[in-house]
Amino acid sequence: MHPAFSVLIFTVTAGAGYGLLGWLCANELFAWWALSIGMQISIGIIAMVLISIGLSASTWHLANPKNAWRSFSCFRTSWLSREAVFAILLYPIAALYAAAIYFQWDSVGIWAGLCLLFSFIIVFVTAMIYASLKTIRQWHHPLVPILYLLFAAMSGGLAWAFLLAWNGLELGLLIQVLGALVAFTTLTKLSYFWLFKVPGGSSIQTATSFLNQKVRILDAGHSAPSFLNNEFIYDVAKVKLLRMRWLMLSTTFVIPFALLYWLPNALTLAIAFVIMMVGLLTERWLFFAEARHVVRLLHGQQQV
């Protein structure tokens, strides 16, 4: 699949934003750290800015954005529509949460709980846009939403740790929790790679209905690349994919993990967060570049 840069920015930035908002709300519910009103609201605003950057990036890849407002209409069937609805609904809820913090309403816990729930749902629903597509084996898998949620919790958690340390708060157990989260996510991502090591599923035989014979393409029917080639047949050299995997593993997991344990102060945590965001962009690029759509079978690939 062709990795559209706008979609990479969207899922990574908004993911971190929803993650950060989730940590803020969880803190409200479980009272891990005592934060000032100003600090809570500032963290909430930072999260909403990240989310808004991501959401606006997601509209860049629309070829006909003037109809984007219609995407709220198919909530019952379309994951993309659900995502749009939940993403917009979060704004008034987050505003009410901010008001609850500022005016110290008794209902602040309810608004925090709702924000946490919505953040979780939105990340899950975003992942389901991909995971619901049966045409792409590498996406149609339960690990896809699980990984999206883990990445959001991890990157948001790192931003949360940085903001706490920056304000001179004691991190305490957070370092261990984040370290464990990074380690667990690494293992999950590695098992995802391992799962899709070998091509499987639909083949050129099932795509052409000649189930028991050898099939090979002679001519794809067009002399220049078409929409289908540009969208679905994104070929990258194996060496480059491997390099990107190493880059992804080191920047998303290894370096942030090392920085977390080595000297967790505001500066190193900020550096770790930036490096992790680069890593997550690489991860999302790989998520697209390594996904093989079944249309490739009709262009001569033997199996996806």
Binding site: I204, T208, F210, Q213, K214, V215, R216, I217, L218, D219, A220, G221, H222, S226, L228, L298, H299
Partner: peptide
């Protein structure tokens, strides 16, 4: 679109 395949050996 029309694609052309060779089927069997």
């Amino acid at each position: 679109r029309i694609r052309t395949f060779e089927v069997d050996e």
